[in-house]
Design a protein around this nucleic acid. Structure first.
Lengths: 144, 144
DNA sequence: TAACTTACTGAAAATATTTATCAATAATTC
DNA sequence: GAATTATTGATAAATATTTTCAGTAAGTTA
């Protein structure tokens, strides 16, 4: 199910701002924060209240349509998630992020953590940092 | 090596505010943000400029003495890390966090991600969310 | 232990970010 | 196409973060 159908079925309207924001995030391919989204839309000539960006992100996030992605420097951005995917690998250079399938073999680790810490494990956050193919090429060419 | 020695050897001074802040974070056992640290210290009668809290956290973070911990709700806090530990499990109820040893068997997953995404993997962020022993007891007793 | 050097702090102000409010607007339903 | 009401945009308010700089205190040297 696409996000538009999901939104509708959840009882929310498919407004122009919401479409713009989601489309931008899908195109961007890298984590964006509210301010960046607002600025990019302005540059595209799409005028849209900053407040709406905040509200839209909050809604999308609460519905699980987008996810927070954490940069190594501590900045936080949002990216849309596909169904079944939950984890991102982020390029340390250009910040482009792609999803990867979660690991099945987390069970062992979970079992160990539960016995070590006596916490009951409910969920996890897993992200990788690295260098994307484009930036690897740039690196090899000595351009960065 | 303890953090005080580390700080000194890195050429930084062991000031009263820095000691207070680190001690508070060690006692708190849960991720604290700048404002929370400032407020808690005030409550303890320790007056300390908020700006110093920001600067201290930035320093500790850049030296790797503390680490960012992400709550499921998107809030970010800081916690001191022990050498060799890098990952936290956070209680969804009381936010108390404890460290656990990183997994050795991340190699397989890393290999898969590299071949799937063509990214070069450099680092990762792994965190678990769950229920701590204390809150499990409270849950069983029906108190929360 | 006193004087010296300079990293560090605190206070105030400037910026930046996030939230609240409410009338106007536009997406859906009938 | 009109009615209903969720959603938006603008303004203002609240919060959070950064900058600046003079005063202070941590570490060093004598």
């Amino acid at each position: 199910m696409d996000w538009q159908t999901f939104l509708s079925q959840a009882g929310y309207r498919l407004s122009e701002p919401r479409k713009r924001i989601m489309k931008l995030m899908e195109m961007a391919e890298r984590p964006l924060n509210p301010l960046a989204i607002h600025r990019l839309l302005c540059e595209q000539g799409v005028h849209l209240g900053l407040v709406s960006v905040y509200r839209t992100l909050e809604l999308f996030f609460s519905l699980g349509l987008i996810r927070q992605v954490f940069q190594p420097d501590g900045l936080v951005g949002y990216l849309p998630v596909s169904f079944g995917h939950h984890h991102f690998i982020v390029c340390q250079n250009c910040h482009r992020a792609v999803e990867f399938m979660g690991s099945e073999d987390m069970r062992e680790l979970v079992a160990r953590i539960q016995s070590e810490t006596h916490y009951l494990v409910k969920d996890h956050l897993l992200q990788f940092y690295g260098v994307c193919p484009e930036c690897q090429a740039l690196l090899e060419a000595g351009e960065i």
